[in-house]
């Protein structure tokens, strides 16, 4: 308990230091505070469901990174493999970078009994992975593998 209090204070101080260098509009958009500062504890099942959704996004991001690294490393005889790999890695980075913020916003909304805000990320993910697949199919069909 004592350790937890000390650690959260240290974490808060370093985050504040970092935030003081950034313009206020950017600060408000990127850094969401500790959701425990707002409202009351929701049903523990909701908290755990939110946690699992966050973890599912992190795994999606890691799977995209694995796909991207795999494309760059293994597909050496595949035309345009660099473009595919970098595309997947960029999608992966976007997913990882937004996942904590999304978790905190949802946790805060649940604590305040507010409606949960929708996310554009699933749509972006669908379009992004779809694009990568189409580009891969075109490169494979017209570029010829093994060349």
């Amino acid at each position: 308990m004592y350790l937890r209090v000390v650690d959260s204070k240290l974490m808060a101080r370093s985050t504040e230091d970092l935030q003081s260098y950034l313009p206020p509009q950017f600060r408000a958009r990127v850094f969401v505070g500790d959701p425990r500062d707002h409202g009351d504890d929701p049903d523990y099942r909701f908290t755990l469901a939110n946690e699992r959704t966050f973890l599912a996004w992190i795994r999606t991001s890691l799977a995209l990174a694995a796909g991207g690294l795999g494309a760059v490393t293994i597909l050496n005889d595949f035309p345009g493999e660099e473009v595919l790999g970098l595309g997947l890695l960029t999608l992966s980075f976007l997913t990882a970078a937004t996942s904590y913020r999304r978790w905190a916003i949802i946790e805060k909304a649940m604590r305040l009994s507010q409606p949960l805000p929708p996310s554009k990320l699933p749509l972006l993910m669908g379009i992004g992975v779809g694009l990568v697949s189409v580009v891969a199919a075109i490169l494979f069909a017209f570029g010829g593998a093994g060349g």
Partner: peptide, 19 residues
């Protein structure tokens, strides 16, 4: 409440940094 912001923050930041 089982809420654990430190764990989610650590995983979020480390994954973002690694990727």
């Amino acid at each position: 409440s089982p809420v654990h912001p430190r764990a989610t923050r650590a995983v979020g930041w480390v994954t973002t940094g690694f990727i």
